[in-house]
Amino acid sequence: MERLQYEVEARGAATARKPVLVGVTASGNCEVLVEAGGAPERCAIDVHTAAQGFGPIWQAVLRDFGERHAAGGLKIEIHDVGATPAVVSLRLDQALEAWEDDDA
């Protein structure tokens, strides 16, 4: 297990909504929980991963995520069991999509 904590610059600020969960903690997969909270220009991401030593890859994946989405002011927590960057990016995109779709 490795715990990695990042703060990435976000393209814009997200609207505050109810928490969103996508994905499952399962082999080759990850679950992503998105909540409101934090500075509006940055996104805080907390990663718990079963795979050791992939810090630089997480950094790059999350930087690109910040460039893609208006995720400012969001707090994201990820439980990962060896998901590939493609799967992680997909889950993050799905989570943000669900966040934006939620009209609560």
Binding site: G28, A51, F54, G82, T84, P85, A86
Partner: peptide, 8 residues
């Protein structure tokens, strides 16, 4: 190909 296979 996927850029990463199983087990990264």
């Amino acid at each position: 190909v996927e850029t990463f296979r199983e087990h990264m």
